[in-house]
Design a protein around this nucleic acid. Structure first.
Lengths: 237, 237
DNA sequence: GAGTGGTCTAGACCACTTC
DNA sequence: AAGTGGTCTAGACCACTCG
């Protein structure tokens, strides 16, 4: 079953394409079928096909390049955590954030994580993220063990600075969207020592829940950073 | 001069309509000309007109109602400041935020405000915003005196809880968009007393610059709230 | 040069609102 | 019933990319 027959044609086509993207039918870096191809296959006019594709572009799933084709777009979610923090470079070009794995443990999730992920059988990842050698974010990441079998034993050398590409390449799990929630609190002893501040000092906490294409929560993480480095911009209207 | 002739027709039409909206040609609550009307007047096909209108809808300026017409949309920017703060109601329905004017003074703007507004001749408004009788936000608002002549002498009874409607109704200035920037600091004595916290305690600071339809900055404000009440959600992807 | 997406046309029929 | 926006068609020409 694709989707409701009462829906407009462009909606049904959008839903079908979203499903095929989720199933990995078109790998990243490869062009999708052209507008003409799709309109012929689905017996729809090109204009209708364009509307379906444009919707997926607006949702951030696809990317169009004139003269070339329509491509999958891989969002850079990991970078978005850093958007919450001041980057103070001294004239030099912006450096690449690095990651250091502190630990990976198969464990039981706390209640609120269990509720989000739908299981308490999880892998807990501790990680420290730095920019220009300076520790910026201290992360606790929970992923369901059932869908990430063996993640705690992958050689560290095979895990780059970003996790989401690893999720995709090793487990076929594509992070489609995420929800961030920011609030403030004080540092516990361990977080404080990682971030180079003192216990009880103010820190910013970003809670993130990440979802796959089907809308299932596949990761919960808590990222902590020093409040005095925090800065966030947003545009309205 | 409307806009560049090299631009696509739907872009030029969008620019012209945005200008006419900015000039107040179509008041709020009245329907704009229909698609057929516009296509005839501009010698464009309906599809092209639709694309121009859709763009303005996406930008949040217009609103379409099937069978009825296309209408102006008034964004509720003031509510967006409160989205940064926890609303903890005890079972009751969400109450309406109230505002209390503390002072209005014609004065010289500090350097960074002067730079943003392009003048140092400003009116400074101090305001306290509450939710269910609880002080939540303490605001300093700067507006250019030249464009808001006499704002400091308007009877307080004629200023409701929201400023932007007053800007529009009395000065014809329509706030089209705004930029918020959030960071953290500590409370000075006066802010602390307004918010019911202590000097030196952590507070969240939201700096906002608001722009009119022409892209000119018409307001700069600093809103301070207690950090422990701060909570912000954002969706990515 | 062949193929792609970007713009644009001039219609059609439908669902919905308004009078 | 008349007018509005919502969907859809079957073309056209253009600008751009790529081999």
């Amino acid at each position: 079953m694709t989707s409701d027959r009462r829906l407009p044609a462009y909606q049904r086509l959008r839903d079908e394409m979203a499903r095929r993207i989720a199933e990995g039918e078109w790998g990243p870096d490869a062009a999708l079928p052209s507008e003409n191809r799709l309109s012929a296959e689905h017996a729809l006019s090109v204009g209708t096909v364009r509307k379906a594709i444009q919707q997926l572009v607006d949702e951030g799933l696809l990317e169009r390049r004139q003269g070339s084709g329509t491509y999958l777009r891989k969002p850079a979610f990991d970078a978005t955590l850093f958007r919450f923090f001041q980057i103070r470079e001294h004239g030099a070009a912006t450096s690449i954030p690095t990651s250091r794995l502190i630990s990976r443990t198969r464990t039981h999730a706390p209640a609120h994580v269990c509720e989000t992920l739908g299981t308490d059988d999880v892998i807990l990842i501790h990680r420290l993220r730095c920019l220009s050698e300076q520790p910026l974010l201290c992360e606790e990441i929970y992923i369901p063990a059932a869908r990430f079998e063996g993640f705690d034993t992958i050689p560290e050398t095979e895990i780059g600075p970003l996790l989401y590409p690893v999720y995709f390449e090793r487990y076929g799990i594509f992070v489609a969207r995420a929800e961030d929630e920011v609030h403030f609190g004080t540092a516990d002893a361990r977080t404080a020592s990682h971030l180079g501040t003192k216990e009880g000092h103010p820190i910013a906490m970003i809670e993130r829940t990440a979802f796959d294409m089907a809308g299932t929560a596949i990761e919960w993480r808590l990222a902590c950073g020093r409040a005095d480095r925090f800065r966030y911009r947003s545009r309205i209207g």
